[in-house]
Every structure is written in structure tokens, then in C-alpha cells.
Design a protein around this nucleic acid. Structure first.
Length: 678
DNA sequence: GTAGGGTTAG
């Protein structure tokens, strides 16, 4: 390499345009540039962290970075770990024509790697162009670097193009392309390369297999994954910890947890990734207890959880609503210290919101160093689920002020907030606002608008809205209308909506029950019976209702009419006590939500043992007076329980929070936060 | 020397 004369350092200028004197001592801390490409764009600089004043030689110092900007090049100090900061504040001007330096091959590769890591496609392209006019034009290793740069920067077209034109390819070339497709979500393209490479005589290695397996975890069917599994077994790759982890992750993504577990157990050497993949699989299925068990097991075996682990654990806590467990794990994160809160902050917000503590969710949100789109969406959605519509809308406006671009999820949360708080005008306003932000309304957005109009009693408008939808209405859209018809006792439109649903999704029990209830409350008992019969004949089954409460870190599950609980007699006595007290202050059992063909007494009896009531009675037995009771349900709370809980919050003098599949209900002083919208 | 696996909002 040509020696780089020291006078070139004078071309470096400081932050405010003044020449920057780079004394040998400064060279120790500041970076200086070494190379400028003919085209002016790509530049590398070296960090003199190994330098010792005069002995330091810029030509032999290790490369650690690439200059980033185009014309006026502002260098970003890049530490050897690859993270960047602006600490040097060094500006470099006019690097063009500073010499006819011919870069070394390693220089190209280092620069390409930095472009790849920093996702600098433009600079990468310039380096590619430069290489094409050099003697390294056909260098396989350098071409692989370039290929990797295009693939990682998301330009799969350029990657594929280069791959096709490469005079020779090796396993790395194939793996780079496969992983590129796999990482950019183009699973089918990645998987299609597998037979091609076999055909050309290339044997996938552990790297290739991992990438292919990742693709099959998100691909169109688990068929490819099983094929790859067989291949791994044949060549003994299944024992490799990387391939093994990928295999287990692939099965976990297909929710084949039994197979995932078998692979996990068979792994001689497990690592954090294997644990994370297994935990994430169970977390995706909402198996909270299982996740907690695995997490503890992992700790006991001396593995250090990463932010991936915590994210999955919090996701699991969010879906089971285990506030105590979530808090415990949160404390564990803080105690263990090492985990950057930024990575897991968003899952924490979600966990607290879904476990019923919106206050803690807000606290975490406020403390985040940087609030990104996911943070905002999580907190807005949290407020929406708790029926705090005004607060959710306020946050949304704050988000716009903070110049964070909302996406379709943001708007869905905003619309849900309006729907859960009965804010009709606001809902319509924000639905229109989506167009301004160039976000296309999806089915889910339309559902919330139908819901909003329907609840407000504007059923015909809601129907008209559905008719004029630019996309095909789904069962969920008609379901929103049907629910509103039930609420406002509009039988004709309700029947019409139900018919649409039965065509689109004949196996859902919800609409059948709603329709039969609509008939029943209109006095059309024979029609109601017909719907029930239809349900029975077509094998439509209702999901068994259950509720659960968490007491002292343990989850207790209750099923309707459950008489298997060891404390059932005490629980029943407690409910009777509560029931007596609330009847005194005006509670009247609302039997219209129960099967209409029962007599009044049977209906009341049936209602008494609704799972949420059992859960409430149990919680009252097991917790000190005054403490907030948190109950979770796997279906929506029924009208009678809703009414009973309002009275119960008064006679018990404590807050009861119920999370159902739709939202949160905070019962306090005889009222509910949903203001009877649910 | 270049290639691989694990999170988050609906």
C-alpha cells in the first residue's frame, strides 16, 4: 500500500469548518481517514486506539469504520465493537483526488462489512462499482462480501442479479443468498434454492441449514422443515447446537411443541438460543405457566437470560395476565442489571397494560429513553383496552407532536379506544385521518367503525357503511353489526347479519348464540330453538368458559358449574353471601343471557356458577379486605355478571378488575369503567 | 476472510 503522507491530515477540518490539528496525541483518540475512493463517496478511516504517538502508522493501523455521508462527509466515530457515536465530531472535506491510492483487498472487505452492518446501501454500491474497475473484479470472497451487503441491506434484486452473474460460487454465496431471502421474509424464495443447490452438487452446511430452517418456520407449510430435519439427521447435523436450535425454533413456530421439546431434550449442548426458542414457542401459545417453569429452570441451570428471553416471558405474562409474576421477572431484570431496558421496555408496557396495571405501563413508557412506534402503540392500545378513551386520544396527539409516524396498528388502537368509550364523532374523525397519513383501512378498522355506529344505535348507517366498504366484509364485520342488533333489539337486521356470518364462518358459536338470544328476546321461541338445533346439528361448539385469578403467585382456574374445586363449598357459601347482599341493594339476576328454554329458577341457578362469580368468591376468601381483585376470562363477561360485579364492588368496598377477551372492566363504587359499553 | 439460529404493538 502506498504510504499516506501526513499532510493529508490537514484536509480534515473541525466541526465548525476550522482546520483540525491532528497532533500525534490526538491521533490516539481521533480517527483519521486513510482512503478515498476515486468516486469520492466511499471512505474508510482508521481508529488509532492501538496507536502510540509517533510510532503509529496510519497505513498499518486496523480499519474500523467507513465514512457515511455523501458530499460533505461527516465521520461517525465507530468503535471497534461496531456501535457508533458522534464523539469525535470529525469532519472530512473533499476526499477526492487525494491520491491514486489503490486499496488493498482487505480494505474493500472491511468497508463492505461496515456498509452491511450500518445498512448503507448507497455507499456499498459505490464500493461495488469501485471494485468492478479494479483488479479484484472476479474475486470470489469479495463478491461474497458484496452479495452479503446487498442481501443484508434488503436489496434482494441486486443480490440475486449479482449471484446469477458470478463466475463461480461457493457454499458461502449460496448461504448468503438464502439467508438474505429468509431474513427479508421471502421464505419461498429461500426454500426454492435448496433443491437447486443440491442439484448443482452443493451440500448445505450448518449455516445453510439454519437459514433454510428459519425460512421454513415462516413458510407456507411445515413440509420443508420436516424435509430439512430428515436431511440434518442423515448427515448428523441435528446434534449441532445451531442447527438443533433452528430445528426446534422451526417446530415451535409451527406450534408443534412436542417435537420442539424432543429436539431440545436431545441437544447435548444447549445454549441461550435453544432456551429462547423453546420459551418463545410456549409464549406464542400463551402458555404462561409453562414459560415461567422453563424460565426458572433456565436460571437454575446457570444460563443468563437475554432480552429475547425476557421479551418472551413478558409476552407470556401479558397473555395470562399474571401481574405478580410479571413484576417478579421485572424485578429480576433490574437486579441482574445487564439487560438494556430499551429492548424489553415495549414488552413491559404491554405486560403491565394487559395484566391490569395501566399505571405501571405508563411509568415504564415514561422512563423509556426512546419511545418508538411500538412503545406508542403499546401504551395507546393499553389505554384503549382499559376504556380510557380520552387518555388514549391524548397520547395519540402527543405521538404526532413527537413526530412519530403512526401506522395501521396505531389507528386500530385509536379506533378501539373510541369504540370502547363510545366516542362516535372522534372515531369517525380518526377513521378519516387515516387517509391523510396514507394508511389504508383494513377489515379490522372497518369493524371498529361498524361497532361504533352500531352501539350508538345507528344501525342502518352501520349497515350502509358495510355495503360501501371498499374491501369484502368478513364475519367479524357482520358480527359487530349483529352484536349491536342484539343490544338495540333489532331483529330483522340482526337476522340478516347472522345469515351473512353463517355463510362466511359457519362454525363460530358466538353468532348462533347471539341470534337465538335475539329471537328469544323478541318472543320468537321456536326460531330461537331452530338456531340452537342448527348449532347442534352442524357440530358448532361453544368454547367452555373459564376464569382465573392469581393469588400469591399462583393461578387458580374456574370453569362454569365446576364442582371439582377442593374449596367448592366455601366458595359457594361466599357467593351466596355476596349474592344476598347485592340483592338487598338492587341486584336483579338478568336471565336473558342464559338458555331461554330453562325455567326461571334453573336460569338463576346456572348464572350463580358462572366462572367469574366463582373466581370472585374465591378471591374474596383468599385476599385481605380492600385489596384490588383481578379476574381474567377467556370469553366476554356476561351481562348478568357485569351487573352483579357492579353491585359487588359497592358492598365489598373494593375494586374488581375483570379482563375479558375484549377489554378491561374496572368495577368501583357500584360502577364500571366501561359505562356499560362492552 | 465472507454465511446461521432467539423478542415487542393488532
Amino acid at each position: 500500500m502506498v504510504m499516506f503522507p501526513h499532510c493529508y491530515f490537514n484536509r480534515c477540518i473541525g466541526k465548525y469548518g476550522r482546520p483540525l490539528a491532528l497532533s500525534p496525541s490526538k491521533l490516539k483518540t481521533l480517527s483519521c481517514f486513510l482512503f478515498a475512493a476515486k468516486y469520492g463517496t466511499p471512505c474508510a478511516f482508521v481508529e488509532s486506539n492501538t496507536a502510540e504517538s509517533q510510532d503509529w502508522d496510519p497505513c498499518t493501523a486496523p480499519f474500523t469504520g467507513v465514512l457515511q455521508d455523501e458530499d460533505l462527509l461527516r465521520t461517525t466515530h465507530i468503535s471497534s465493537s461496531g456501535t457508533s457515536s458522534n464523539s469525535t465530531g470529525l469532519y472530512v472535506l473533499d476526499l477526492i483526488n487525494c491520491g491514486s491510492l489503490e486499496p488493498e483487498r482487505t480494505l474493500y472487505s472491511k468497508m463492505l462489512n461496515k456498509c452491511t452492518y450500518l445498512r448503507k446501501l448507497k455507499q456499498g454500491r459505490a464500493i461495488h462499482a469501485h471494485i468492478q474497475s479494479s483488479t479484484f473484479e472476479d474475486d470470489l470472497v469479495l463478491l461474497n462480501f458484496i452479495l452479503n451487503m446487498y442481501a443484508k441491506c434488503g436489496s434482494l434484486e441486486e443480490a440475486q442479479d449479482l449471484f446469477d452473474k458470478m463466475p463461480t460460487k461457493d457454499m458461502v454465496s449460496w448461504t448468503v443468498l438464502i439467508s438474505g431471502y429468509s431474513q427479508s421474509g421471502q421464505a419461498s424464495e429461500a426454500l426454492a434454492l435448496f433443491p437447486k443447490m443440491l442439484h448443482l452438487g452443493f451440500q448445505p452446511n450448518e449455516f445453510t441449514l439454519s437459514s433454510l430452517l428459519k425460512a421454513s418456520g415462516t413458510g407456507p407449510s411445515d413440509h420443508h422443515g420436516r424435509q430439512l430435519h430428515a436431511f440434518s439427521l442423515k448427515y448428523g447435523y441435528d446434534m449441532n447446537v445451531h442447527v438443533g436450535s433452528s430445528l426446534l425454533d422451526m417446530y415451535a413456530r409451527w406450534a408443534h411443541m412436542r417435537e420442539a421439546k424432543v429436539i431440545f431434550n436431545s441437544l447435548a449442548a444447549k445454549n441461550v438460543v435453544s432456551w429462547n426458542a423453546l420459551i418463545a414457542g410456549h409464549a406464542r401459545k400463551g402458555e404462561g405457566e409453562h414459560v415461567m417453569r422453563l424460565f426458572l429452570q433456565m436460571l437454575r441451570q446457570g444460563f443468563e437470560p437475554t432480552h429475547f428471553t425476557y421479551s418472551s416471558v413478558f409476552t407470556a405474562c401479558a397473555s395470562s395476565g399474571s401481574l405478580e409474576q410479571g413484576k417478579w421477572v421485572h424485578a429480576h431484570v433490574i437486579k441482574s442489571g445487564g439487560q438494556p431496558i430499551a429492548y424489553i421496555g415495549n414488552t413491559l408496557i404491554d405486560m403491565y397494560a394487559k395484566s391490569g396495571s395501566i399505571k405501571d405501563a405508563k411509568k415504564v413508557f415514561r422512563r423509556l429513553v426512546k419511545q418508538d412506534i411500538v412503545s406508542w402503540n403499546s401504551i395507546i392500545s393499553g389505554y384503549a383496552q382499559h376504556g380510557l378513551g380520552a387518555e388514549a386520544l391524548q397520547l395519540f396527539e402527543q405521538m404526532l407532536k413527537a413526530k412519530v409516524q403512526p401506522n395501521e396498528i396505531t389507528f386500530l388502537s385509536v379506533l378501539t379506544a373510541c369504540s370502547h368509550s363510545g366516542l362516535l364523532d372522534e372515531g369517525q374523525y380518526y377513521f378519516e385521518l387515516m387517509k391523510k397519513h396514507k394508511i389504508e383501512a383494513q377489515v379490522a378498522h372497518h369493524v371498529t367503525v361498524v361497532d361504533l355506529l352500531g352501539r350508538a344505535g345507528r344501525l342502518n348507517e352501520a349497515n350502509k357503511f358495510i355495503e360501501e366498504m371498499p374491501i369484502k366484509p368478513t364475519a367479524a364485520v357482520w358480527g359487530a353489526l349483529l352484536g349491536s342488533c342484539r343490544m338495540h333489539k333489532n331483529m330483522d337486521l340482526g337476522v340478516y347479519a347472522a345469515e351473512q356470518i353463517f355463510e362466511l364462518d359457519p362454525h363460530d358459536s358466538g353468532p348462533h348464540v347471539l341470534l337465538s338470544n335475539i329471537y328469544a328476546s323478541a318472543g320468537r321461541l321456536s326460531d330461537a330453538a331452530k338456531v340452537r338445533k342448527m348449532m347442534k346439528e352442524s357440530g358448532v361448539k361453544k368454547e367452555p368458559a373459564c376464569s382465573w385469578v392469581e393469588i400469591e403467585n399462583e393461578v387458580h382456574v374456574f370453569v362454569a358449574n365446576d364442582d371439582s374445586h377442593p374449596m367448592r363449598e366455601e366458595i359457594q357459601r361466599m357467593w351466596e353471601k355476596i349474592s344476598g347482599k347485592i340483592k338487598e341493594i338492587g341486584y336483579v339476576p338478568d336471565t336473558s343471557h342464559v338458555l331461554f328454554f330453562m325455567n326461571q329458577q334453573d336460569r338463576e341457578l346456572k348464572l350463580q356458577y358462572h366462572s367469574e362469580k366463582l373466581a370472585l368468591a374465591f378471591a374474596v376468601l383468599k385476599t385481605p379486605p380492600g385489596l384490588t381483585i383481578r379476574i381474567k376470562k377467556n370469553i366476554r363477561i356476561c351481562g348478568d355478571c357485569h351487573s352483579a360485579f357492579k353491585f359487588a364492588s359497592r358492598v365489598l368496598g373494593r375494586e374488581i378488575i375483570v379482563r375479558d377477551t375484549n377489554r378491561f372492566h374496572h368495577f368501583l363504587h357500584g360502577m364500571c369503567s366501561c359505562r356499560d359499553y362492552w
